[in-house]
Amino acid sequence: MITSTPWTSDRAREIVAAHARCDGAALPVLHALQDEFGHIPDEAIPLVAEALNLSRAEIHGIVTFYHDFRRQPAGRHVLKLCRAEACQSMNGAAVAQGLLATLGIGWGETTPDGSLTVEGVFCLGLCACAPSALYDGEPIGRLDPGTLDEVVREARGL
């Protein structure tokens, strides 16, 4: 289950200060902010830019370029479905599209009840058991519609 702290600029400044002296500090700072708050709030962009002496556009570019960064809070659970070639060759794309259609959401979106966010990733390194996924960080292999139904039921507490 995903847990996060409500945004406060004071806590964000503490996090930025703790990581600002790292080599290539932008990524460690942004990861730490997301670990704390569950996403990168818009209010964090100018704060990080100022602390690292970078432009807001540079920080925005980093946040929007890397798929791991979220601009909105995730659901209570996160399912990362592999979209790489090995998983595609094992019907992963059709399985994923079926799930998204059933949930009525798109890639990177959260179910209306807030229980599950579905994200696409490119290669989890689980090619031997394709198609694969990570559910709250735990690997799942040989996905099929039944397995994903179980994940959805668990995410919803059913």
Rank of each mutant, 00 (worst) to 15 (best):
A84W: 14
M1I: 09
G104A: 00
I45T: 08
D136N: 11
D42P: 13
D10A: 10
D68R: 01
H39Y: 14
P28M: 13
I59V: 15
A93G: 03
V152L: 03
A130T: 04
I45R: 08
F37Q: 08
I140R: 03
V151F: 09
T3M: 10
E50H: 01
A51W: 03
E154D: 02
A25H: 05
L103K: 03
A32S: 12
Q97H: 12
D35Q: 14
T64I: 10
G120V: 04
G157E: 10
T147N: 04
P112N: 06
A32V: 06
C87T: 07
L30W: 02
R56A: 06
W107A: 08
G24S: 07
L158F: 05
S132D: 01
A17S: 07
P112I: 08
D35K: 08
M90A: 15
I45P: 08
Q34M: 12
R156W: 01
A128P: 02
R56V: 12
D42W: 00
S132V: 00
N91A: 12
F69H: 04
G61A: 06
C129K: 11
Q88I: 10
S9A: 11
G38Q: 06
A155S: 15
L126F: 03
N53Q: 10
A12G: 02
P46Y: 00
A93V: 06
L158D: 08
P112H: 08
E50S: 07
D149Q: 10
V95S: 00
L126P: 12
I2V: 15
A44E: 02
L143W: 14
D10V: 14
R70Q: 09
T8C: 07
L30H: 03
M1P: 14
E58K: 15
R11P: 09
G104T: 04
L126N: 02
L79Y: 00
P6K: 05
R153Y: 01
G114K: 14
P73D: 00
P145E: 11
